[in-house]
């Protein structure tokens, strides 16, 4: 399949009290056209920062892209001027966030926020057309009585409905790529099932490519075609979803997959665990970042492992593999 987005050796840093730290430190990834790429990892692994780097929405003035490239449609988003980026963001690449209450503007009506996307990117449309289109989108994402909801404020609708509004806004520009950053983490499990199904359906209908960020391996298994497991700012393992779950190769991937409680487990037995915790980014172990928690660590791990291709489309950064 053709690549629609290619990230190469991306480094993104943040200024902190203790100096600059690299939240994303040499990440290379590619998103295939029409596919769902999952980014999975624990807090601080750099999955959200990767997404914000693509969108060029890094918090200013603390965050910046240090080096590397993000190729999309023949342009390098990492160095694109802001004015050019303005035409891509929300139109060609759209993003939805974990907490729709904070992502929506509380003082604007729901309909107005969707209409804004049309006003920004499709200035040939008339007011009436914009309104009709917005209501049509609300209906499309499964919001009952869309004409009524169009006039409501975000606080008047439920969390699941807000996430549907966010999705409607993202779809307004008919984007090529949708980035979904933990879109269901704040939702209840029955609502999560609704939203995941909606995203999948719309992806097929619009032929979008999706980057899906989550910490939940169950959600990854349900939604993704390819997966990149991130740890402390780097890619640990990158493989098609069935490969990753059936033959995980990186000790971190193996550890996570065996430590999650599953319905098939024998109840009340101790779970296999990964010892210790994720190191802070300003105090990483030398060499492999997973070394201090790794059951397979050896002398060679004092060097930083490169991400190597060990089988077709299966990349791992570990010396022991």
């Amino acid at each position: 399949m053709k690549e629609i987005l290619k990230i190469d050796a991306l480094k993104t840093s943040f200024k902190t009290e203790t100096g600059r730290i690299n939240a994303v430190d040499g990440v290379s990834l590619s998103l295939k056209k029409g596919a769902v790429l999952g980014l999975v990892g624990e807090s601080g692994c750099g999955k959200s920062v990767t997404a914000l780097s693509i969108m060029r929405l890094l918090p200013q003035p603390f965050g910046r892209i240090e080096s590397g490239s993000i190729l999309f449609d023949g342009k390098d988003l990492a160095t694109l001027p802001s004015s050019e980026m303005f035409k891509i963001r929300g139109r060609r690449i759209a993003m939805i966030f974990q907490e729709p209450m904070t992502a929506l503007n509380p003082v604007h009506r729901v309909g107005n926020q969707i209409a804004e996307v049309f006003r920004l990117h499709f200035n040939e449309m008339s007011k009436k057309e914009i309104k009709n289109k917005s209501i049509e989108l609300l209906e499309k994402v499964g919001i009952p009585a869309p004409e009524k909801r169009f006039r409501e404020y975000p606080h008047q609708i439920s969390g699941g409905m807000r996430q549907r509004v966010m999705i409607a806004m993202a779809l307004a520009g008919k984007p090529d790529i949708l980035i979904a950053d933990e879109p269901t983490t704040a939702l209840d499990v029955t609502i999560q099932a609704q939203i995941l199904r909606l995203i999948k359906e719309l992806q097929h209908e619009y032929g979008m490519s999706v980057i899906f960020i989550t910490h939940d391996p169950g959600v990854i298994a349900m939604t993704c075609d390819d997966v990149a497991v991130m740890y402390a700012g780097r890619i640990a393992e990158n493989a098609p979803v069935d490969k990753l779950f059936s033959e995980p190769r990186h000790p971190y991937t193996k550890g996570i997959l065996s430590s999650i409680p599953r319905l098939s487990n024998k109840r009340k037995t101790r779970l296999p665990i990964i010892e210790g915790m994720v190191p802070p980014l300003d105090n990483l172990p030398k060499g492999c970042r997973f070394r201090n928690r790794c059951p397979d660590a050896e002398d060679a791990c004092i060097e930083e492992p490169d991400v190597r291709e060990i089988a077709e489309n299966h990349r791992v950064s570990c010396f022991a593999v």
Binding site: T190, I191, Q192, A193, G218, I220, A221, F245, L257, R262
Partner: peptide, 25 residues
């Protein structure tokens, strides 16, 4: 039944079966 079938199963070969509840709580 709906709650249990909504659990995301960490296994890509698992096929979703059961109903997705409509509406909000």
């Amino acid at each position: 039944q709906a709650l249990i079938s909504s659990i995301p199963v960490p296994d890509p070969t698992h096929k979703f079966s059961g109903t997705i509840l409509k509406g909000d709580i």
